[in-house]
Design a protein around this nucleic acid. Sequence first.
DNA 1: CCGTATCCGCCTTGATACTG
DNA 2: CAGTATCAAGGCGGATACGG
Lengths: 126, 126
Amino acid sequence: MANQPITSYSTAPEVDALVNDLIGRVADKWTLLVLEQLEEGGEQRFGALARAVPGISQKMLTQTLRAMERDGLVIRTVHPVIPPHVDYRLTTLGHSLGEAFCGVWHWAEANLAAVQRSRSAFDARD
Amino acid sequence: MANQPITSYSTAPEVDALVNDLIGRVADKWTLLVLEQLEEGGEQRFGALARAVPGISQKMLTQTLRAMERDGLVIRTVHPVIPPHVDYRLTTLGHSLGEAFCGVWHWAEANLAAVQRSRSAFDARD
DNA sequence: CCGTATCCGCCTTGATACTG
DNA sequence: CAGTATCAAGGCGGATACGG
């Protein structure tokens, strides 16, 4: 396969695309909120999550939890009782993702004011 | 304003919402790719970015760069010549965001295989 | 070369109603 | 209580054409 072009770096282009897709999935608004809620509240029921995450619809919660389960971020535990009782908790992988996002979270907290100032200045042009 | 409820944490709920919005803005697919490209390529022209970011349309590139400029992540420099010549480079703030995202980037790289395995296992259920 | 404007299809999301 | 199904609506993103 000869030499790689000099513009390439450590990882292969296709892997880069996969990594980007993964980030896109995982950086979703609802996923972030659910992740946060599971981090601070520990194992919780579907209804508890629905109440805790502001503005999420049942559909989006189900969809988000399914995707997270499929990606190995959460464990879904069904207790076969009536009425149904389903618990969700983070996996080790899910936890590690939460930690990885801490950096972004801190950045956003630390620089929110700066961004707001920048926006005001920009909007006041002309 | 008396005591805060015991379930609250360091930041106020409204700030939390603002922080979430900010993350939503900044975690956008195209923003991430443009940020990456500016990190590794330094100051570049509009056309160079258009060529470097795979699959982006002119419209999305313009839109993304405007939003980043407004948020104080990039500096736009117009050289008043014919034909026009416009350069973009990261601000300190933009650079710091790139560093904050490194954690997520590394997580995605390190755990891509694990996620793919989880997905395969999930899809093979039943 | 850089950017704006317009149109249009599609995908995501929310609301609602219903089942186990 | 937890989840699915259906439908309508809105926004996002792409293609194209044009302006400075």
